[in-house]
Amino acid sequence: MKAYRTGLLALALSVAAGAALAAAPAPSPLTPQLIEAAKKEGVVHFYTAVDLQLAEVVAKQFEQKYPGIKVVVERNGSERLFQRIGQEVTANIHNCDVVNTSDAAHFVRWKKDKLLTPYVTPDIADNFAADQRDPEGYYANWRNTLSPIFVNTKLVSEAETPKSFKDLLDPKWAGKLTKAHPGYSGVVMTATFQVSTALGWGYFEQLAKQKPMQLQSATDPPRKVSAGEREVAVDGTEYLAFTLIEKGNPLKIVYPSEGTPMITSPAAVMAKAPHPNAARVFYHYIHTLEAQQMLVDQGGLRSVHKQVKEPSGRVPLSKIKLLPEDAVAVEREAEAIKRRYRQIFGT
């Protein structure tokens, strides 16, 4: 199990990691005073790249648990959120309280730019392994998802179902593929980095010849395949696919044999959050077992919270070959990846 470190060993590791870095603040408990102060603020602005409907469920459950604090969801693609926050900060606008994107590289950058505030909740300290959070406490992994291949089961027979990324280069898939855009989606940004590292950019050059339908958000390809607009999606979020399958859509997930990109989506409290107390209460809440289990059960996400139970019927993460993630490299190469992608795919 790569991402899930359970048991004493992990605990010992994270304690050791915590001790080594004195800069990590001690976990802050959720005090009645904090909740009271949050209620006075009355609202928290949550910038997130998670699928809109799921984001609204998180908001609603939080509002039920903490009546008097409203959640305003600003849902956008990760890369768009990154650009928006940059624009707002330049204009000295501080509107965001808690941020979450599917491009871990953003958090590397934001931490460098001092836009985040270190804050650790007891849940993060106890239940999130050391490699799932910033050693200095500036951010912690909120959710994980994979970017596998999606197949419409009504349109593609079992025998024809592609097994790997390379299978998608077969001429028979020309005009039948769809994919999302790394200029918009953090999931696809990360996936593009991982796939290009594993298979080389030549893979994308050949893929472009198949004329895939270009979408923006990574939540869109599984939708378009469900609707039968295209037979196969090259990328997209696994979590939305689970939900779509459970709703009865003719969709199937294929974990490609080369390995599946895994995308971590951290969350953080903004340094200049306009509602600092509400931001902290909300940050507490989204890392609790209750919220994390909901993300998994209702949202189809993968959680790294140690006590979360994976529902049966989904392929467990331990059985899936994953492509390696490298947020620092993505941060460094983001611009080059986007430019290269534009040149290859034309948009």
Binding site: V72, N76, E88, L215, D220
Partner: peptide
């Protein structure tokens, strides 16, 4: 920006999300 969104922009964003 997030708190000055208008309907046309909301519709546009929703489209990106499918």
């Amino acid at each position: 920006t997030a708190n000055t969104k208008v309907l046309s922009v909301v519709i546009y964003d929703l489209n990106e999300n499918g």
